[in-house]
Design a protein around this nucleic acid. Structure first.
Lengths: 344, 344
DNA sequence: CTGTTAGCGCATTCAT
DNA sequence: ATGAATGCGCTAACAG
């Protein structure tokens, strides 16, 4: 029995197969100037010996490390995780691995991490933002493909994949309209977020298309349950006839639901409520379950990985901000009988 | 101006410093057989040229990649993120980078990821579980240090760092007692989780020490708000004199708070409620803010990284399950005037 | 088609 | 104290 850490090397495979190291290398890398029978034999032996090329040695002369860096500023990981999952799915397992770096929203630290990643010779970089607010470009002289996800780069020469906030607002209100609601209000979060404005604009567009307008001007403050509660109290006090509320986030929506219940409004019969984010723990724990908009971040991650691949292969990955479609998730807060009380 | 991707190499530094590559290498790596003046000059020039050793070339003969693998089964990232953050803090930035692999709770995939990590020649592996239930050991012949975090390995030869669930239950109840509560109940989650039993046992021990017992037998079902609501309705119906509820999770605790309010119980005046996990979005969004137990996962990550370091340096990292201390976070659900209504 | 030769960038003998 | 030489494991010319 060989020692446990006996790492089998290419020369082991070559010797066993009775060929030179070079031939073994070609056979394993699919080069076409090698006899079919030879290749078969080398592959079989490599498999039998469970040979795996040392990525350091390989990378040393191919200049490719088979790694990508995921640079995030998202402490909570709420956006980063699905994006990472999507990217991992796209990167064939074992062929590309992902370095995760948390810059904690600090520009200095971000530059450090960037240097570290480039020094590691990552083949590409995915930059994940904690919000969909545009962010400054990492640098202009990065020698590998870079894709910005969620938070787009301010530099139009960079490629950015972002959720379509306008579409999100639009489909949210279209759904309320489809539920027969006509007296619709909008309670959203921090007005410093471009997302808040995009969603509101999309919502208003949907109303216009139906010949309607908001019952009250949209209100903005912060992305918290507390704000959802107080805003709802004010809103229903002044406009008791509201029959649909589009909340700018699931957290706000939970506050809306809480206060609506306390004021004796039945959801979804009296009042339909729709949230935003499809944050599982929030949206499924509420009473009733929350209809909401899902940004499909996993798709963004997958697309980003695909672009990185193309970039590694030498292709131009493109530029500009690509607004990606979002999706409605229907639960009990707009449609009776749907997930009426969370999953419990 | 040199081309943007002109990577500066050790021989560049050596030439610039007027020494051989060997001497430059020694100087940069702190070997002691090099003149002080020479070292100073080499270091200065390396700094000026912003030289960074190519980790692939370096790893090729040191057998150390300067990377560790973080193997997780935690889809939500709720446990993984703080652990990762703690580990990153311990690993001096830029000297060690972290490969993140999500096995999605699939043992087959986990073995694949493990192979991929070992093939990458990671210097160590941190295994993060989604629960604190013991899990099977990865393998017995892993040539690098492995530390299990959160979910301990079933193999006592492995080193595991886990939160002290017993202590958590104990300090939760001790806090309720300190708040003057004596009629205490426990509503917890899925009895298939060892955490549920550990917390309950710790809670009971604290009561015993005070010459008390639970007002009603602890109940177990699932870690959801819905269960927290229905369990509370049952509990307060049968034992209206309960003045303290220890919930097995923050989600359950939110359900408790909801139902308590609906039944007209004032928290924390009539009834004190304490949760578990310190899951920010849950614990700070509630009314009032939730007193809860924090597992200090960031510390676990930091400790794991330190152990990995020791292991890389050749030391024995130890074995067995190390129960790490947990911590109480006090908010308004047990103490009046503390974070009375979330952060809003 | 196959093998020989030459590096990739660095650490490490072993001379000097 | 310094430098020439050797090799880590592999890929990429080139020569047979």
């Amino acid at each position: 029995m060989a020692p446990v850490d006996a790492v089998v090397t290419l020369s082991d495979v070559a010797r066993e197969a009775g060929v030179s190291i070079a031939t073994a290398s070609k056979a394993l890398n699919g080069k076409d100037d090698v006899a079919a029978e030879t290749r078969r034999r080398v592959l079989a032996i490599a498999e039998a010996m469970s040979f795996r090329a040392n990525p350091m040695a390989k990378g040393l002369n191919t200049r490719l490390s088979g790694t990508v860096g995921l640079l995030t500023g998202d402490l909570e990981g709420r956006f980063m995780i699905p994006i990472l999952t999507g990217a991992e799915n796209a990167f064939v397992n074992g062929r590309v691995d992902v370095f995760l770096c948390d810059a904690r929203g600090d520009a200095i630290r971000e530059q450090h991490q960037l240097r570290a990643l480039l020094n590691r010779r990552v083949d590409g970089i995915i930059v994940v933002g904690a919000s969909t607010n545009p962010r400054s470009s990492l640098a202009h002289d990065i020698p590998v493909p870079v894709v910005y996800v969620n938070a787009p780069s301010e530099n139009p020469d960079d490629l950015s994949l972002a959720p379509d906030e306008f579409m999100g607002g639009r489909i949210a209100v279209e759904h309320l309209l489809a539920c027969g609601r006509t007296r619709i209000a909008h309670i959203s979060g921090d007005p410093a977020y471009t997302a808040a404005h995009g969603r509101a604009a999309g919502a208003r567009a949907a109303l216009r298309d139906a010949g309607l307008d908001f019952v009250a001007d949209p209100v903005f403050s912060e992305w918290s349950e507390q704000w959802g509660r107080s805003a709802t109290a004010m809103l229903l006090g002044r406009h008791p006839d509201v029959d649909g509320i589009f909340a700018g986030s699931d957290q706000i929506a939970r506050g809306v639901l809480d206060t609506a219940r306390e004021l004796g409004r039945e959801v979804p019969d009296d009042l339909s409520v729709i949230g935003y984010d499809n944050w599982e723990v929030i949206a499924t724990g509420s009473r009733p379950g929350l209809t909401t908009v899902d940004a499909q971040l996993q798709d963004l991650g997958r697309l980003a990985a695909q672009r990185i691949f193309e970039g590694i292969d030498g292709a131009d990955i493109g530029a500009g901000v690509r607004q990606q479609p979002v999706r409605l998730v229907v639960r009990g807060s707009t449609v009776p009988g749907r997930a009426p009380a969370g999953r419990g």
